[in-house]
Amino acid sequence: MNTGFYIAQQVINAISLGSLYALVAIGLSMVFGILRMTNFAHGDMMMVGAFGTLVLGWLGLPFGLAFLGGIAIGAIAGVIVERTAYRPVRGSADVTLLLTSLAVTYILENLGILVFSSSPRNFPIPDWMNEALQFYDGQITFTQINVATIVLTAVSLGFLGWFVTRTDAGLGMRAAAEDLGAAQLVGLDVNKLIIVAFAIASGFAGLAGILWAAQSGIVEPDMGFTPLLKAFVAAIIGGFGSIAGALLGGYILGALEVFIVAFLPSEVSPYRDAIVFALLIAFLLFRPNGLLNRTQEVKL
């Protein structure tokens, strides 16, 4: 097999995986930027979004509508969690926020099991999405889902870029991320901004969840946890709290994961997750602000 094609194929794989990580990491970073909260329950919005789409599909909605509905359900779930669990502890110690979100994860996953059982379920998608595109005699292959993932990620990013630079709510969110107290002082409705931030972050997670389910073909209650851990790594590599950083981190992580397995000897590939998390620790130690974020006090 031609080495050039092999590399090209792996790059495509990396972009597709990286897009998903980026979608999750952006929401994580957005919430962190405003509330300084490491939101473990963020991954569960993927599960909520995917199950939302699945249920709407059962109710007879065409896939496109179910898809949009799933994103909306993810966004609503995020807002509900913020309103019921996070707002009462807002402003508490870092650890309190972190632990609250851990408990929310625990509840949501078990709720998912109670309602849907923990058996994975088939996630039906339209046939065209499964179609494989082959180039150069099948030496480069990718599917319509990969294309859809990349396109939808790009569209969402475009929307987010427009939102945070061109709308009042978006500008307010950035102000809140800069300094929550000051934003409140100048009269911004912080509660509303935080709700908007959670809606967007969770909607993105819902989208990632649906795409994840479409790629893997199944939905299950704990589907969000592993991507969430990876999104943490992505967000921190990029600079926790920075949207652009999360985007960059997502693609770097996607590339790293694919390349470790593709280009290193097979004795190394089982250690992929160890390498990824060692990188995370290295970043925390030597470059805690990541690649793009402004300086914050995190070390002694």
């Binding site: 300084r36 490491t38 870092d94 650890v95 926020l97 972190l98 943490f232 921190i236 995370l280 620790i281 925390l284 130690l285 805690p288 006090e297 995190v298 070390k299 002694l300």
Partner: peptide, 9 residues
């Protein structure tokens, strides 16, 4: 490290 950074690490 401090705060959530040590938790994540």
């Amino acid at each position: 490290l401090s705060g959530y950074f040590v938790s994540v690490a």
